[in-house]
């Protein structure tokens, strides 16, 4: 394997002209290579490109640099207040050592169906900024994941930032990761919801699910049950049912497909109620 350390974004892009694996925290890539899951011809180390490590407000949006670490998310007041599902997912992300190294971009590029940061980024309409020697483009996260561990990012492209819509005053949200232990665990199901309320009417609804299909995704049928409506128990039930119907999980060592599917309904129902401050039969 050829290993290059880039001193600038341009250098990284030039080195990747014919395709490369970019290495940031290495928390996915190193074990993948070590255990033979990935064969890499050229690795380009971008971990020292400090210009890609930031979390900022720009044009009314939140821009997260590709190299921002999961710990950076936790230490950001902006993320905590204006992207709280992302903040909560960062709390449940692996353990402190991994959080210190793992980058936000790396979690997305790994394209695991269970990528912890994907559901909360999806519900805040994330758009990723991609650059290559040929130029730059913006790609909505909802079009980013193509299939199991497959993204729309071209081999020569580098992710520079992720842009999300802040929650704002009208944003109501909730997040939950169902896992088999309290740290260093892959999600059995990950759910994030954001409801943008205009008075008592839901102007926009975003519901995303992780670990229940080949890719993390927005449950649009479930969202449609809520959009433009005053949300009551019937709407929530319909959304929960639609979310459950939308799931296409697999059986694996962590849980059965049937359980995961069922949990999509349970958790969407619960998180919608939680987001709206409605009473719950059982606390999350």
């Amino acid at each position: 394997m050829e290993f290059l350390r880039a001193a600038s974004v341009d250098e990284a892009l030039a080195a990747a002209r014919d395709g490369a694996a970019f290495v940031a925290g290495g928390t996915n890539l190193v074990p993948d290579v070590l255990f033979g899951r990935k064969k890499i011809a050229r690795a380009v180390d971008i971990s020292r490109l400090d210009e890609l490590r930031f979390i900022e407000e720009a044009d009314g949006k939140i821009r997260i640099g590709a190299l921002a670490s999961v710990t950076d998310l936790l230490e950001s007041e902006l993320i905590r207040t204006a992207a709280s599902p992302l903040y909560e997912s960062a709390l449940e992300f692996a353990g402190p050592l991994v959080r210190n190294r793992a980058s936000v971009a790396g979690n997305l590029m790994d394209a695991s169906p269970a990528a912890d940061l994907a559901p909360p980024l999806l519900v805040q309409d994330a758009v990723v900024e991609l650059a290559s020697a040929e130029g730059e483009r913006a790609l909505p996260l909802s079009e980013f994941f193509l299939d199991y561990r497959k993204t729309a990012v071209r081999p020569e492209e580098l992710m520079k930032a992720i842009v999300i819509e802040p929650l704002g005053q009208e944003g109501r949200c909730a997040y939950y990761k169902l896992q088999l232990r309290r740290a260093m665990a892959i999600a059995v199901v990950g759910v994030a919801v954001v409801l943008r309320m205009k008075g008592s009417v839901c102007a926009e609804a975003a519901i995303s699910l992780g670990a229940v299909a080949a890719v993390p995704y927005r449950a649009q049928a479930a969202e449609a049950c809520l959009c433009g409506k005053e949300i009551g128990v019937a709407e929530i039930e319909a959304a929960a049912e639609a979310a459950e119907d939308s799931a296409r999980p697999i059986d694996d060592v962590r849980a059965s497909a049937a359980y995961r599917k069922k949990m999509c309904g349970v958790l969407v129902r619960r998180l919608l109620k939680k987001a709206l401050g409605m009473p719950q039969p059982v606390a999350v």
Binding site: P31, G95, L180, R181, R182, V253
Partner: peptide
């Protein structure tokens, strides 16, 4: 609560500490 080599037709599924869970200090 969480451990298990989880054999499936003679093949173990919990063959690393990623899939074979042991309790952490958080648990």
């Amino acid at each position: 609560m969480m451990e298990g080599l989880a054999p499936l037709e003679g093949h173990l599924r919990g063959k690393n500490f990623h899939d074979y869970l042991i309790a952490t200090s958080m648990d």
